[in-house]
């Protein structure tokens, strides 16, 4: 009887179930978070900017994210919606109209109409011709979209670390 207390098998008396439950919940949480944020961010070589503000994933998914590759291909939600060969902006426009409708509206100073108050995130490869981005900016100003806040994605210098 006395021996059984030191038996390695009886050391397992500690209840592991709650711990394993919590760990699994954490794993599921992180898996979901990673999946959501990866969905819209394409693998691109972004230009480096020291002053870039840390970008937190948008919880409401209200912010439109437009990825532009070096050749001008536009990818939204993992889907190619514009290629320079076809040069057809209708799908991008539809996406922006849909997103603009979801946004909170406000009347900024100097304007008399309600326009979306949320920004658009533009992510482009560092060598993308800027005219590709200007074209998207033009679309943002069109009737029915009128997004005027832009966030330009950049990577932060590697020595800076993730920041505080």
């Amino acid at each position: 009887m006395q021996m059984s207390k030191h038996d390695p098998e009886t050391d397992m008396e500690m209840n592991m179930t709650p711990m394993i439950d919590v760990v699994f919940l954490l794993i599921i949480f992180f898996m979901i978070i990673t999946d959501l944020t990866q969905q819209e961010l394409e693998q691109l070589v972004l230009p480096v900017a020291v002053e870039a503000v840390e970008d937190k994933p948008d919880k409401d998914e209200r912010r439109p994210i437009v990825n532009i590759k070096q050749d001008g291909t536009i990818i939204v939600r993992r889907e190619v919606i514009y290629t320079p060969e076809e040069d057809d902006y209708t799908r991008l426009k539809e996406y922006l109209v849909d997103m603009a409708q979801l946004m909170d509206k406000d009347t900024p100073e100097g304007l008399s109409v309600m326009v979306p108050d949320d920004p658009i995130l533009i992510r482009a490869d560092e060598n993308t011709p800027f005219k590709m981005i200007q074209k998207i900016m033009e679309l943002c100003g069109q009737k029915g979209i009128q997004i005027w806040k832009v966030e330009l994605a950049a990577s932060r210098p590697p020595d800076e670390g993730p920041g505080i």
Binding site: L41, K56, P57, L111, V115, G141, W148, V150, L152
Partner: peptide, 26 residues
């Protein structure tokens, strides 16, 4: 999963604005 989550926050953004000329300016 914790590590992969941290890598993503390395990305930053710069704020900019587009001209609000679409409506009648006051």
């Amino acid at each position: 999963f914790m590590c992969t989550l941290q890598f993503r926050t390395l990305e930053g953004r710069l704020a900019a604005y587009l001209p609000k000329d679409t409506g009648p300016a006051l």
